[in-house]
């Protein structure tokens, strides 16, 4: 029994059908307590006030926003090397979720930034790279939409994902050269969060685990939908042939 067996759409659908209820339950029992704990039962920070609570949405969504792209990159590579259809459909399924998470991270960041820094937006390297990531998600999804033949679309979006990743890294590096590039960014980082007291740290970790499970659940749901859509396309093509 190798992991590649799940590359067969039928096998994938059977297994995930059994898995989905458990995943939904698991997501619910981590995400909801994590957020409730963070929002209602953790103390307010002395110099941050209530606004610190947004960390329980902001950090997990930012974490997923980046890792969703990395997951898409890996899935695209698997498709290009091993031609497993489910892999590339999972990448396609992850893109809108990654896009949404990036948007959540940007919006919660702006809401947090307003009282903290006195501005909704700053061209800080970290913020800028999230904006760039947002555009990359858009481009990836737009290319999927534009191409009729599913295998062609899969190949080209995978290539875009790989090349895009290189340029995304370069952009990240490039913004570090900005003269104003060194301010304020540490307050947003996960490293910093790990230094904060346990009272903030524990619910945050639970929220992150919840977000990861939410991401996996959503990706699997969407992949199942994509597999069905792809099957519909194949059946329609067969219809035309007969």
């Amino acid at each position: 029994m190798s992991i590649w067996e799940y590359a067969n759409p039928k096998k994938f659908m059977e297994t995930t059908a059994r898995l989905m209820p458990w995943l939904v339950a698991l997501t619910a029992v981590t995400l909801i307590p994590g957020l409730v704990w963070g929002y209602f039962f953790s103390p307010e920070a002395e110099n941050f006030g209530t606004s610190v609570k947004i960390i329980y949405l902001h950090v997990p969504s930012a974490f997923i926003a980046i890792n969703a792209w990395i997951m898409m990159l890996v899935a695209s590579l698997i498709w290009l090397v091993r031609r497993h259809h489910v892999s590339v459909l999972a990448a396609k399924a992850a893109a809108p979720i990654g896009l949404t998470m990036t948007l959540i991270a940007l919006i919660t960041g702006a809401i947090w930034g307003q009282p903290m820094w006195g501005t909704w937006w700053a061209w800080d390297p970290r913020l800028t790279s999230f904006l760039v990531l947002f555009i990359f998600y858009l481009g990836y999804m737009a290319l999927w939409e534009a191409i009729e033949n599913p295998d062609t679309a899969a190949d080209l979006t995978s290539i875009l994902c790989i090349v895009g990743s290189v340029f995304a890294l370069l952009s990240r590096y490039a913004t570090l050269f900005w003269p104003q590039g060194l301010h304020q960014d540490a307050s947003l980082s996960l490293d910093k969060a790990e230094h904060v007291a346990d009272v903030y740290h524990r619910p945050l970790v639970l929220s992150i685990i919840g977000f990861v499970l939410l991401f996996i659940t959503l990706v699997l749901y969407r992949t199942r939908t994509e597999v069905r859509a792809r099957r519909l396309k194949a059946l329609q093509a067969r219809e035309r042939m007969a």
């Binding site: 760039v132 858009l138 534009a146 490039a174 913004t175 900005w178």
Partner: peptide
């Protein structure tokens, strides 16, 4: 239009370093 959407983000590093 799609071409612009795909290419413009790829231009960011060159633009940043060039202008800088």
């Amino acid at each position: 239009l799609l071409l612009s959407l795909l290419v413009l983000p790829l231009y960011i590093p060159s633009l940043t370093f060039g202008a800088e």
